[in-house]
């Protein structure tokens, strides 16, 4: 293992950097810009049982040091993801991907996870029980410990690959939800999804987003994410994929010190198409600067 590599539930990543779901499509489009095989892995666009157009426009609004999105899980549906998107990814990416799955009922999650679990390109399942941009399902499963555990159990019963539950920060106590997922058999936790936010247009005096509110991401939410990862790390014994506003190599180190084993980079990809590449290339120098020999050795190091 190299000094950047980490072990995520048995899946050894060359480095901890994973583009976050929804900011990197199905990966292959970024292959036009750089060799995506330098990435640790890729979290694929959130996939649902049926195809979804998502929310009407506008879906995007700007904030100080961040943005709101209310895309609403646009995706071609699991069958087309398997028949069209994964083969395209396979042509330019030789590593295992993270399959991000969403649903609107327990049965949806089970159906989609069972199918994605069987795909050779998939190394880990990331079960999104935290999407703030859909009316039913999504976040509603991730806001109580009971329903989070129920989804975890159901998905675990039909899958063989590691299952990471992606949690919402829009809850009273994220620690109890993470613990409930662990007790229900989750192999890891992915956190945090976006924070609920809204912007209002002063000209027409109405919310900018058609969906009214959306998910707040970007560097502004980084300290929120670090704090939540730190607290959850103390309460559970399964690995955490940390995310939320990560923009630089230094942010990656900070997130790992808080307790993350791997780190997803989201909104930064949308501003800097080369964000993940820049972070990976910047990690060795940042590690030297802070006298870090290997990334694996600093996980949870702030505790």
């Amino acid at each position: 293992m190299g000094r950047l590599s980490v072990n995520l539930s048995g899946l050894v990543l060359d480095n901890p950097i994973i583009p976050a779901s929804g900011t990197f499509g199905f990966g292959y489009e970024f292959a036009e810009y750089y060799d995506i095989n330098i990435l640790g892995s890729i979290s694929l666009k959130g996939t649902t049982k049926d195809p979804r157009y998502g929310n009407p426009l506008p879906r995007i609004a700007e904030c100080s040091s961040g943005m709101l999105n209310a895309v609403g899980l646009q995706n071609p549906g699991v069958d087309k993801v398997i028949s069209e998107e994964l083969p395209k990814l396979r042509k330019c990416f030789s590593k295992k991907a993270v399959a991000n799955v969403s649903g609107f009922s327990l049965e949806d999650y089970v159906y989609t996870c069972e199918k994605m679990d069987k795909q050779e390109e998939v190394g880990i399942l990331e079960v999104n029980i935290s999407c703030p941009n859909v009316k039913h399902g999504g976040m509603s499963f991730g806001t109580s410990a009971e329903s989070a555990a129920e989804i975890t159990r159901a998905v675990k019963s039909v899958t063989k690959k590691p299952v990471y539950m992606k949690l919402s920060p829009n809850v009273t106590d994220i620690v109890s939800i993470a613990k409930a997922c662990e007790e229900a058999g989750a192999d890891g936790i992915a956190m945090i999804n976006t924070l609920l936010g809204m912007r209002i247009n002063l000209r027409d005096k109405k919310p900018i987003l058609f969906n009214k509110s959306g998910g707040f991401s970007g560097s502004a939410i980084f300290p929120v994410a670090v704090s939540m990862v730190y607290r959850v790390y103390e309460a559970i014994n399964i690995p955490i994929i940390g995310m939320g506003g990560v923009t630089t190599a230094e942010d990656v180190i900070e997130m790992m010190l808080a307790g993350a084993t791997a780190v997803e980079v989201g909104a930064a990809n949308l501003i800097e198409p080369y964000a993940c590449k820049n972070i990976i290339e910047g990690l060795p120098a940042a590690m030297d600067k802070y006298k870090i020999d290997s990334l694996e050795s600093i996980i949870g190091g702030a505790h």
Partner: peptide, 22 residues
């Protein structure tokens, strides 16, 4: 025209429906 996130096809922030699909 649309409010865009990335501008290069990654975020699905500006998808419209057309008669030939999204």
């Amino acid at each position: 025209e649309a409010r865009m996130g990335c501008g290069f096809g990654a975020c699905m922030g500006c998808t419209c429906e057309t008669l030939y699909g999204n």
